[in-house]
Amino acid sequence: MEWIMANWKTATVKEIVWWNKRLFSLIVQAQIEPFKAGQFTKLALVNEGNRIARAYSFVNPPSHADLEFYLINVEDGLLSPPLGQLKAGDQLQIASQASGFFTLDEVPAAEQLWLLATGTAIGPFLSILQNEEVWDKFKTIHLVHGVRKKEDLSYRDLINQLMERHSQLKYVSLLSQEKNLDGLNGRITTALEQKSLEQYFAVQATPNNSQFMICGNPAMVKESCQILLNQGFRRNRRSEPGQITVEQYW
Protein backbone atom coordinates (compact mmCIF):
# COMPACT_ATOMS: atom_id res chain seq x y z
CA MET A 1 0.00 0.00 0.00
CA GLU A 2 1.29 3.45 -0.87
CA TRP A 3 0.66 6.26 1.60
CA ILE A 4 -1.81 8.97 0.72
CA MET A 5 -1.90 12.61 1.77
CA ALA A 6 -4.94 12.70 4.00
CA ASN A 7 -7.72 15.19 4.45
CA TRP A 8 -9.09 13.93 7.76
CA LYS A 9 -12.77 13.45 8.58
CA THR A 10 -14.47 12.26 11.75
CA ALA A 11 -15.80 8.69 11.74
CA THR A 12 -18.18 7.23 14.31
CA VAL A 13 -17.96 3.59 15.35
CA LYS A 14 -21.13 1.64 14.60
CA GLU A 15 -19.94 -1.83 15.60
CA ILE A 16 -16.89 -3.97 16.26
CA VAL A 17 -17.08 -7.68 15.42
CA TRP A 18 -14.48 -9.95 17.01
CA TRP A 19 -13.86 -13.12 14.97
CA ASN A 20 -11.36 -14.50 17.49
CA LYS A 21 -8.79 -13.11 19.92
CA ARG A 22 -6.65 -11.71 17.09
CA LEU A 23 -9.03 -10.69 14.33
CA PHE A 24 -11.80 -8.10 14.32
CA SER A 25 -13.85 -5.97 11.94
CA LEU A 26 -14.36 -2.29 12.55
CA ILE A 27 -17.55 -0.80 11.11
CA VAL A 28 -17.82 2.98 11.05
CA GLN A 29 -19.95 5.72 9.56
CA ALA A 30 -18.37 8.77 7.93
CA GLN A 31 -18.82 11.17 5.04
CA ILE A 32 -15.96 10.42 2.65
CA GLU A 33 -15.41 10.76 -1.08
CA PRO A 34 -16.49 7.94 -3.42
CA PHE A 35 -14.02 5.06 -3.75
CA LYS A 36 -13.49 2.00 -5.94
CA ALA A 37 -13.78 -1.59 -4.74
CA GLY A 38 -10.28 -2.80 -3.87
CA GLN A 39 -8.99 0.57 -2.69
CA PHE A 40 -7.83 1.53 0.81
CA THR A 41 -7.86 4.54 3.08
CA LYS A 42 -6.25 5.52 6.38
CA LEU A 43 -7.68 5.29 9.88
CA ALA A 44 -6.19 7.26 12.74
CA LEU A 45 -6.40 8.07 16.44
CA VAL A 46 -4.87 11.10 18.12
CA ASN A 47 -2.91 10.48 21.32
CA GLU A 48 -1.41 13.40 23.23
CA GLY A 49 -1.43 15.52 20.10
CA ASN A 50 0.16 12.83 17.92
CA ARG A 51 -1.85 11.28 15.09
CA ILE A 52 -1.24 7.53 14.70
CA ALA A 53 -2.43 6.37 11.27
CA ARG A 54 -2.39 3.16 9.26
CA ALA A 55 -3.76 2.13 5.87
CA TYR A 56 -6.65 -0.34 5.68
CA SER A 57 -8.64 -1.66 2.72
CA PHE A 58 -12.41 -1.41 2.53
CA VAL A 59 -14.33 -4.65 3.01
CA ASN A 60 -17.64 -3.08 2.02
CA PRO A 61 -18.53 -2.23 -1.59
CA PRO A 62 -18.74 1.44 -2.60
CA SER A 63 -22.55 1.25 -2.60
CA HIS A 64 -22.76 0.58 1.17
CA ALA A 65 -23.15 3.47 3.59
CA ASP A 66 -21.33 1.69 6.42
CA LEU A 67 -17.54 1.50 6.02
CA GLU A 68 -15.98 -1.78 7.11
CA PHE A 69 -12.35 -2.73 7.75
CA TYR A 70 -10.79 -6.10 8.66
CA LEU A 71 -7.93 -5.87 11.16
CA ILE A 72 -5.48 -8.03 13.02
CA ASN A 73 -4.91 -7.00 16.62
CA VAL A 74 -1.12 -6.60 16.57
CA GLU A 75 0.37 -7.16 20.02
CA ASP A 76 2.19 -3.99 21.12
CA GLY A 77 0.88 -2.24 17.99
CA LEU A 78 0.37 1.51 18.18
CA LEU A 79 -3.04 1.58 16.48
CA SER A 80 -4.83 -1.78 16.20
CA PRO A 81 -5.10 -2.44 19.98
CA PRO A 82 -6.71 0.95 20.74
CA LEU A 83 -8.96 0.59 17.68
CA GLY A 84 -10.09 -2.76 19.04
CA GLN A 85 -11.03 -1.13 22.35
CA LEU A 86 -13.41 1.36 20.77
CA LYS A 87 -17.13 1.10 21.46
CA ALA A 88 -20.21 2.02 19.46
CA GLY A 89 -20.48 5.82 19.40
CA ASP A 90 -16.74 6.42 19.83
CA GLN A 91 -14.97 8.54 17.25
CA LEU A 92 -11.80 8.20 15.21
CA GLN A 93 -10.36 9.84 12.13
CA ILE A 94 -10.55 8.63 8.54
CA ALA A 95 -8.93 9.97 5.38
CA SER A 96 -11.65 11.39 3.15
CA GLN A 97 -10.05 10.18 -0.10
CA ALA A 98 -9.26 6.56 -0.88
CA SER A 99 -6.18 5.45 -2.79
CA GLY A 100 -4.69 2.45 -4.56
CA PHE A 101 -4.82 0.74 -7.94
CA PHE A 102 -5.82 -2.76 -6.84
CA THR A 103 -9.10 -2.39 -8.70
CA LEU A 104 -10.90 -4.18 -11.52
CA ASP A 105 -10.40 -1.35 -14.00
CA GLU A 106 -6.69 -2.23 -13.86
CA VAL A 107 -7.38 -5.89 -14.73
CA PRO A 108 -8.13 -7.07 -18.29
CA ALA A 109 -11.20 -9.24 -18.85
CA ALA A 110 -10.62 -13.00 -18.95
CA GLU A 111 -12.41 -16.32 -18.67
CA GLN A 112 -11.03 -16.95 -15.16
CA LEU A 113 -10.20 -14.56 -12.32
CA TRP A 114 -8.04 -15.90 -9.49
CA LEU A 115 -8.15 -14.01 -6.19
CA LEU A 116 -5.32 -15.14 -3.91
CA ALA A 117 -5.27 -13.75 -0.35
CA THR A 118 -3.66 -14.48 2.99
CA GLY A 119 -5.08 -13.41 6.35
CA THR A 120 -6.82 -10.05 6.49
CA ALA A 121 -5.83 -9.37 2.88
CA ILE A 122 -9.08 -11.03 1.84
CA GLY A 123 -10.73 -7.69 2.70
CA PRO A 124 -10.33 -5.92 -0.66
CA PHE A 125 -11.49 -9.05 -2.49
CA LEU A 126 -14.71 -9.05 -0.47
CA SER A 127 -15.28 -5.46 -1.53
CA ILE A 128 -14.71 -6.40 -5.17
CA LEU A 129 -17.00 -9.45 -4.95
CA GLN A 130 -19.84 -7.37 -3.51
CA ASN A 131 -19.66 -5.06 -6.53
CA GLU A 132 -21.63 -6.02 -9.64
CA GLU A 133 -18.84 -5.20 -12.11
CA VAL A 134 -16.86 -8.36 -11.40
CA TRP A 135 -19.69 -10.72 -12.37
CA ASP A 136 -19.96 -9.24 -15.86
CA LYS A 137 -16.23 -9.29 -16.52
CA PHE A 138 -15.26 -12.90 -15.68
CA LYS A 139 -16.90 -16.24 -16.40
CA THR A 140 -15.44 -18.01 -13.35
CA ILE A 141 -13.94 -16.54 -10.18
CA HIS A 142 -11.72 -18.56 -7.84
CA LEU A 143 -11.35 -17.10 -4.33
CA VAL A 144 -8.41 -18.61 -2.43
CA HIS A 145 -7.85 -17.73 1.25
CA GLY A 146 -4.77 -18.91 3.09
CA VAL A 147 -4.59 -18.72 6.90
CA ARG A 148 -2.95 -20.56 9.77
CA LYS A 149 -5.99 -22.12 11.46
CA LYS A 150 -9.68 -22.66 10.79
CA GLU A 151 -10.62 -20.02 13.36
CA ASP A 152 -8.92 -17.43 11.11
CA LEU A 153 -11.38 -18.05 8.25
CA SER A 154 -13.56 -15.00 8.84
CA TYR A 155 -16.44 -13.87 6.63
CA ARG A 156 -17.53 -17.38 5.69
CA ASP A 157 -21.22 -16.42 5.92
CA LEU A 158 -20.68 -13.57 3.47
CA ILE A 159 -18.70 -15.80 1.12
CA ASN A 160 -21.41 -18.47 1.24
CA GLN A 161 -24.06 -15.86 0.47
CA LEU A 162 -22.06 -14.65 -2.52
CA MET A 163 -21.67 -18.23 -3.76
CA GLU A 164 -25.42 -18.80 -3.46
CA ARG A 165 -26.13 -15.67 -5.51
CA HIS A 166 -23.37 -16.22 -8.07
CA SER A 167 -22.71 -19.76 -9.29
CA GLN A 168 -19.54 -18.58 -11.03
CA LEU A 169 -17.82 -18.01 -7.65
CA LYS A 170 -15.68 -20.90 -6.39
CA TYR A 171 -13.89 -20.89 -3.02
CA VAL A 172 -11.17 -22.83 -1.26
CA SER A 173 -9.35 -22.29 2.01
CA LEU A 174 -5.79 -23.33 2.83
CA LEU A 175 -4.70 -24.03 6.41
CA SER A 176 -1.00 -24.08 7.19
CA GLN A 177 -1.05 -25.14 10.86
CA GLU A 178 -3.89 -27.65 11.20
CA LYS A 179 -5.75 -30.21 9.12
CA ASN A 180 -8.31 -28.76 6.74
CA LEU A 181 -11.38 -30.95 6.29
CA ASP A 182 -13.08 -28.51 3.91
CA GLY A 183 -10.24 -27.41 1.65
CA LEU A 184 -6.49 -27.73 1.22
CA ASN A 185 -3.50 -27.81 3.53
CA GLY A 186 -0.29 -25.83 3.24
CA ARG A 187 0.49 -22.44 1.75
CA ILE A 188 -0.82 -20.66 -1.31
CA THR A 189 2.65 -20.45 -2.80
CA THR A 190 3.13 -24.21 -2.62
CA ALA A 191 -0.34 -24.89 -4.02
CA LEU A 192 0.35 -22.44 -6.83
CA GLU A 193 3.68 -24.02 -7.71
CA GLN A 194 2.36 -27.59 -7.55
CA LYS A 195 -0.86 -26.60 -9.36
CA SER A 196 -2.95 -27.97 -6.48
CA LEU A 197 -5.41 -25.11 -6.90
CA GLU A 198 -6.06 -26.02 -10.52
CA GLN A 199 -6.50 -29.67 -9.53
CA TYR A 200 -8.93 -28.72 -6.76
CA PHE A 201 -11.13 -26.70 -9.10
CA ALA A 202 -10.59 -29.07 -12.05
CA VAL A 203 -9.49 -26.28 -14.37
CA GLN A 204 -6.34 -25.20 -16.15
CA ALA A 205 -5.01 -21.66 -15.75
CA THR A 206 -3.08 -20.31 -18.72
CA PRO A 207 -1.96 -16.82 -19.81
CA ASN A 208 -4.70 -16.95 -22.43
CA ASN A 209 -7.61 -17.61 -20.07
CA SER A 210 -6.71 -16.29 -16.60
CA GLN A 211 -6.05 -13.16 -14.58
CA PHE A 212 -4.49 -13.30 -11.10
CA MET A 213 -4.97 -10.74 -8.33
CA ILE A 214 -2.68 -11.40 -5.35
CA CYS A 215 -2.97 -9.67 -1.99
CA GLY A 216 -1.00 -10.52 1.15
CA ASN A 217 2.24 -9.97 2.99
CA PRO A 218 5.19 -8.86 0.82
CA ALA A 219 6.98 -12.23 0.96
CA MET A 220 3.88 -14.14 -0.17
CA VAL A 221 3.17 -11.64 -2.95
CA LYS A 222 6.76 -11.73 -4.22
CA GLU A 223 6.98 -15.53 -4.18
CA SER A 224 3.56 -16.04 -5.79
CA CYS A 225 4.38 -13.54 -8.49
CA GLN A 226 7.68 -15.28 -9.26
CA ILE A 227 5.99 -18.68 -9.46
CA LEU A 228 3.50 -17.33 -12.00
CA LEU A 229 6.28 -15.63 -13.97
CA ASN A 230 8.04 -18.99 -14.13
CA GLN A 231 4.83 -20.50 -15.49
CA GLY A 232 4.65 -18.01 -18.35
CA PHE A 233 2.39 -15.31 -16.88
CA ARG A 234 3.41 -11.63 -16.93
CA ARG A 235 2.93 -8.65 -14.62
CA ASN A 236 -0.02 -6.51 -15.63
CA ARG A 237 1.04 -3.00 -16.68
CA ARG A 238 -1.02 -0.26 -18.27
CA SER A 239 1.43 0.05 -21.15
CA GLU A 240 1.65 -3.73 -21.58
CA PRO A 241 -1.27 -5.78 -20.22
CA GLY A 242 -0.38 -9.08 -18.56
CA GLN A 243 -2.08 -11.45 -16.14
CA ILE A 244 -0.72 -10.61 -12.64
CA THR A 245 -1.94 -7.72 -10.45
CA VAL A 246 -0.61 -7.44 -6.91
CA GLU A 247 -1.10 -5.54 -3.65
CA GLN A 248 1.27 -5.86 -0.70
CA TYR A 249 -0.75 -5.93 2.52
CA TRP A 250 0.62 -5.66 6.04
Rank of each mutant, 00 (worst) to 15 (best):
Q204H: 08
V203K: 09
Y171E: 07
I159F: 13
R187C: 12
L126Y: 14
E178V: 02
R187V: 11
R165K: 15
K149A: 14
L158N: 03
T140C: 00
S99N: 12
I94F: 07
S167Y: 04
L197F: 15
T189Y: 03
L143P: 06
L175M: 05
Q199Y: 02
S210Q: 05
K137I: 00
S196Q: 15
Q130I: 01
S154T: 13
L169A: 07
G146F: 05
E193R: 14
Q177H: 14
W135C: 02
S99T: 01
E106I: 08
R156G: 08
K195P: 00
L197R: 11
S99I: 00
E151I: 13
Q199C: 03
D105V: 05
M163L: 00
V147H: 09
S127K: 10
F125I: 03
I128Q: 12
L153M: 12
A98D: 02
A95L: 06
V147S: 09
T118P: 09
D182N: 07
R148D: 00
D152Y: 06
L162C: 06
G146I: 11
L192R: 03
G183K: 03
T118L: 12
L192K: 03
T140K: 01
L174W: 05
K137G: 02
V172C: 14
E132M: 04
A191H: 04
F102T: 08
Q168S: 15
E164S: 15
A117Q: 13
E198I: 03
L174C: 10
L184G: 06
A205D: 00
I188P: 01
F101E: 14
Y171L: 09
M163S: 07
Q112K: 15
G186T: 08
Q194M: 13
K195C: 00
V144Q: 05
F102P: 09
Y155P: 04
S96M: 00
L192Q: 09
L181F: 10
R156K: 15
K195G: 00
Y155G: 07
T190W: 01
L175Q: 01
Q130N: 05
T140G: 00
L129P: 06
E178C: 03
E198D: 10
L162H: 10
I128S: 10
G119A: 10
F102Q: 11
K139I: 02
S154I: 03
L197H: 11
L113H: 10
F138N: 02
F102E: 13
K149I: 12
D136A: 07
Q194V: 06
G146V: 11
E178Q: 12
A121S: 09
V172F: 10
L126C: 07
T103P: 02
F101G: 13
Q204D: 08
Q194W: 02
K170Q: 15
K195V: 00
S167T: 13
G123S: 15
T118C: 10
L181K: 05
Q204A: 11
D136F: 02
V203F: 04
G123W: 11
